[in-house]
Design a protein around this nucleic acid. Sequence first.
DNA 1: CAGGTATCCTAC
DNA 2: TAAGGTAGGATACCTG
Length: 874
Amino acid sequence: MRWDGEVCIVSGDNRAWGSSNNPKTVIELWCRSREGHSVVLLVNGLSPYLEISESQTIGNQEPTKSLEVVSQMSEVTEPPILVGEKLSQDGKVRNHYRVMIKDTRFVRNLRKRLIEIGWKVTSADILFVHRLLLDLDLGPHIATDGEVLWAGPRAPSHLASKFEGKRVEAAERIRDIGGSGLYPCDMVVSCDIGELSRADPFPTPFVTLSFDLETSVRHNTILCAAVVVARGEERTEHEFRGPEKEILEGMTRLVRDEDPDFITGYNIDNFDLPRVLERAEENAGRSKFEQAALCGWGRVPAVESEQKRLRPSRRLNRVWDLTGRIPMDAWWQVRQTLRPERESLRFVANLLWPESEDKQKLDIDASKMDEEWRARPDEVMEYCVRDTHLPLDILAHLQSVERKEALAAVAKTTVETAATGTTSQWIDSLVIRLADKEEIAVPMTQSGPRRRDQIAGGYVHEVEPGLKPWVAVLDFKSMYPSIMISQNICSTTLVRDESKEESHNVSPEGTARYVSFDERKGLVPRLLSKLMEQRDYHKTELKKARESGDEEAVFLHDQLQYAVKILMNSFYGVFASSFYRFTHPDLGASITEWARHNIRTIIENVEKGGHNVVYSDTDSICVQAQVETDSPINKPPDDSLVYSDWLAAKEETLRTGNRLAEKFTKEGAELEFETALSAFFSHGAKKRYVGRVVWPREEMLIRGYEVRRTDSFRLLTSTMTEMFELILSNEEWSAVEMSKAVIDDVRGRRIEASDLVISRSCKGSLRRDGRVDFHKVYKNPDSLPYVRAAKQRIEAGLGFTPGMKVGWIVTNAKTSPMTVEAWMVDELGVEPPEYDPEFYAKRLATALGRITEAFHWNAKELLEGTRQQSIFDF
DNA sequence: CAGGTATCCTAC
DNA sequence: TAAGGTAGGATACCTG
């Protein structure tokens, strides 16, 4: 029986099968169909391989090394096949041979042996699933037509009915083509590589499961758990209580029944997942079979041979690996996209849904969970269920899943690689498939020449302290990608010998030269131009869809254009890194060389043209417009006499911006007029400035200052913001007075402690017993206020997971190190700590004084101004 | 108390 | 033993 349809690949893996005479490798693709069914595709027909070439010989003469020796190696299935000439990493062209391998597990060994006997080895470190997508030029969305080997109750009914009561036969047929048995999915479909093809991206109806554990503070045991499954708009709740073993069994059964693609929760990476594993081991003893029943969440049959893939496991470092599914911690998503001041679930819920009381109501004291559980288990359970819904709400709000899917579509990877992979994996996916097409050998990671010292980065212009009226801000559109395109920068176009052709693109400081675009187009420039076109396409389609009111298309194209942007911006970083497979030390260095050259040349020319360049950073430039000297910077009312003066100044600034953009834009370096400011202010430090934007919208622009920083405290942020408003309105005196008043308030303890919470992220190394070791990551952990605060949280039973932000109040700065108290009010509802007024007064004065110093009011004076008042206090 | 070191966070 | 980059500001702690 056959099934055809479109699916999105969640993740993939491979298994060896067949016989020693006829070894085969099947690729397992865990997918979700367009209609919502979970499908395991078992793909046969592709064999693992790598490529070899001679280290020395050039050209297409017969190899001096023996291909016969390679043929005889036990891991190799047939004599190497000549694939033709390919461009090697060192810039030379050589014959390359494909070596077919019995099993992916032998690759590492074979690689080593081939290198030992003098071969150059390429295309030898690519995961087999990636190989499938590369060779067939597939993305995550594919169409397939295959043989149905199993259809469960949730499969289309005409299929499901055929398999009723035939589990054993189905499992056997699956094993016959290389699968491991009855996968816990709606359907298992077998196909050949010829039966897969690309499909246009569509919004996949993924299923997400969220879970939360309530654990004993004293014994680390699980008291109860909740699971919420989101299938489309529908959510189902599940509660688990009773003996710990039954809780674990129940959850595992549910995961396998519901068969989600994503697993989420708040802090699951560092808390819930490790805890599930640890408790499963504790309850199951040594029996691996028992362990699988307690934590076998992987999307593979619950059989002995699958022990490894059944359990969640921590991949080399941070990310979790759960076969066939994607663990996605809502905490990490929040952190990356929202950057909240504090990261507790309570704080984030409050931030996102300030109106919704039920999401933040606090009625359980998590630090006394044992007592709470004993006294009122029903309320604890309710609290647990509510906290299980929140991660789903958060992911939906941040559109995390949709964004990963769009990135996967653009980078042509599985959704898993988009969600948990590294930027170099995304770039690999595009670059390798083009390299294969263009006869360019694919070197292994870490195989090229490596650089030890840093490359020079962007240029940052000095900034004078003070207020500058009427400034036009311009910047280069996608500066680094544009440079890479226009200079044809790529490891395949880098000139490695002494030849100096007229046509070469030579970097300004002479570090590198690249062959011209006409001679050979680099892989990277071509990919980047395509991505630029693709982004323009999605933007056009987005506009069209908006006009026609097609909301689904609006959503899709918006996600896709954003994903293209993310991907394009990742190129420079990867190619400037010291270890990427297609990089060379000169690549990154020459990109920034051109960047510095371009911006400096423009600064010079703008200044020659009589304009004052106020500031510049890497790809942006702030230029003063030449307006009438007494032009107002504050927008007067429409009917005011000076309104026309303000308007004239604004228009002159727009003219300046547009004129400069036109004048300095050249092929491959497009200078865009970004914003017009009626005033620009900096106290004289690079990367710290503010501006009042008057075009294209009206708003205040703040960069770098404490206002932008998540480790500032609320009072400082709000005071400084207010100060900037005044400064940008030419009311410096008021700014100073206002600051003094605030400093005075803090000294008089008239400020609420919640406005004084300082918070910073704190690292740590998680030990097997669940405790955190700070010495591994910090030289002198106890000298750091956030480590001291983290320790207090742990002490209080509130939990701390490495990497999270920790909030604290300084209660006495006279001690050394200063005394701090962790902020636990959000979570425990306790009384806030009593703060040290002098400390906060001083910190405010320092930060604000740095700014007022531009008007000759320093920190000391801000503090002194208040002293007179405190004399009266006595 | 000046200066150096460790650390975090941001701009681009 | 895993991996996008550099430039830059600021704070707390420690040392001599």
